[in-house]
Each structure stands twice: as C-alpha cells, then as structure tokens.
C-alpha cells in the first residue's frame, strides 16, 4: 500500500500562530455565546444561574464586551498575518492553495453530491475543501457584522446621533439572529464536518498540534498532494 509509506511521515499543516488564534477564537466565541444567550434569555432559570455566576448582569455584559474585543483583536492579528504572509513571505492570498473561493469549490460541491449518491468519483480537494473555506469566511465576515451591530448597541448615544433610533433596534435584532446562526453553524456544521469523521472522532487534533500525516493529506486533500508532493512519488 502506498499510503502506509506516508502513515508516519509528519508534516506541519498549521503554524503556531494559527493554532494560538484558533484556541483564542474557541474560548472567546464560547464565552460570547454563553454570556450573550444568558443575557438574551435572562428570564429563564438557567440563564439567571449563569448570570449570577458571572457576577450579575453588569458582569456578564462586561465579559461579553471584553470577549468581543479579544475576538476582534484575534481577527486583526489574523489580518496582520495575511499582510506579513503576502509581503514578507511572498505567499499567495489567492489561488488553488489559498482560502480564496474558486470555481473549483462549486465543482467540488457538485462532484461531492454526485459521489454521495453513487454517481461518480470523490472530488480532489485542494489544501482547503469548500466546507473549510465556508468555515473560514463565515467567521471572518460574520465577525464584521457582529462587530458593527454590537458597536451600534454598545454606544447607542453616539450612533443615534448619526442614524435614526430604529437602527439600534434593527442592530439588536440582527445581532441576535446572527448569533443564533453562528452558534448553530459551529455546533452543527463545523463540529460534524470536522470532528464527526470515523478516522478522527472524537477530535480532529491537527488544529491543536499543528501536525498531520502525509497519508492524511493524500486522503483528504489529494489536490494539494498532487501538486506539492508529486515529486516524492
């Protein structure tokens, strides 16, 4: 078997910065969700218990805002990294091995559905599959709108001098609904697509250790394998 040869060959998939940022996002996102929903459903008993644990409504609110600020700092750190990657490391922000959406992603999606229904071969994913790209862009873009609506609600006195008052109410609604969407997406799509896979269940460790095996790349990201390690064959 060819894959056996690569079973023990370890290669780095995520650098230390990305591992750190992922852990940061994990913690702050969970805190945001817990404090946010506890505040939204403050009439429920479970929420009241949580809120009193966090030092009352002002405490939960403070924790929510501080976590939001930390989350946004992480997003900024990532953007700084992108600049460094492009300018200093001369990397490519677009192209087949980037997270930038490609036509191939749509083709992969169709191909994957054909494969699931037994009508063809599995798609040859590049470095990031379309689901991983959706994971990434959902966070990166979702945070912008969460941040904007959150700021609108956080400083209503200032923003209501710029916009009519109902904008604050709209922001409130959007913030809540997008929170439901984000938490639902992470809890259902991200968790199942990443961790609910027989080979890695219960936890896909590569984002924490940063390492993966060549055999795994060959299986999950054959497109990347073909272009990067083709000469090793």
């Amino acid at each position: 078997m060819e894959s056996n040869r690569y079973e023990n060959q370890i290669c780095v998939r995520f650098c230390v910065l990305h591992r750190l940022l992922h852990i940061g996002v994990m913690i702050t996102f969970t805190l945001l969700a817990v404090t946010g929903f506890a505040l939204k459903f403050s009439t429920e008993t479970w929420a009241q218990g949580l809120i009193s644990f966090m030092g009352g409504v002002p405490g939960a609110g403070w924790l929510h805002r501080v976590s939001a600020a930390m989350f946004y700092l992480i997003v900024m750190a990532h953007l700084v990294w992108l600049g460094y990657y492009k300018l200093v490391l001369k990397g490519h922000l677009t192209g087949p091995h980037s997270l930038f959406p490609q036509i191939k992603d749509f083709q992969d999606l169709c191909q994957n559905f054909r494969y699931i229904f037994g009508k063809g071969e599995p798609p040859l994913f590049n470095r990031f599959s379309y689901l991983e790209k959706v994971d990434y862009w959902a966070v990166l873009l979702g945070m912008q709108s969460m941040g904007i609506t959150g700021l609108l609600m956080g400083y209503p006195e200032f923003f209501s001098t710029l916009f009519p008052g109902y904008v604050i109410n709209i922001a409130n609604d959007l913030h809540f609904h997008e929170a439901v969407l984000a938490v639902g997406y992470i809890a259902v799509v991200h968790m199942s697509a990443t961790h609910l896979i027989p080979e890695v269940f219960p936890l896909e460790k590569s984002i924490f250790t940063g390492k993966t095996t060549k055999a795994k790349i060959m299986k999950d990201h054959p497109g990347e394998w073909n272009s990067l390690y083709a000469d090793e064959k």
Binding site: M54, G55, G56, P58, G59, W62, L63, V66
Partner: peptide
Amino acid sequence: LHFSLNPES
C-alpha cells in the same frame, strides 16, 4: 476583575 464583573459587590 471583581469590580468589572460585579461593581456593587
């Protein structure tokens, strides 16, 4: 930290 979480404590 305590004041930030629970200013009235």
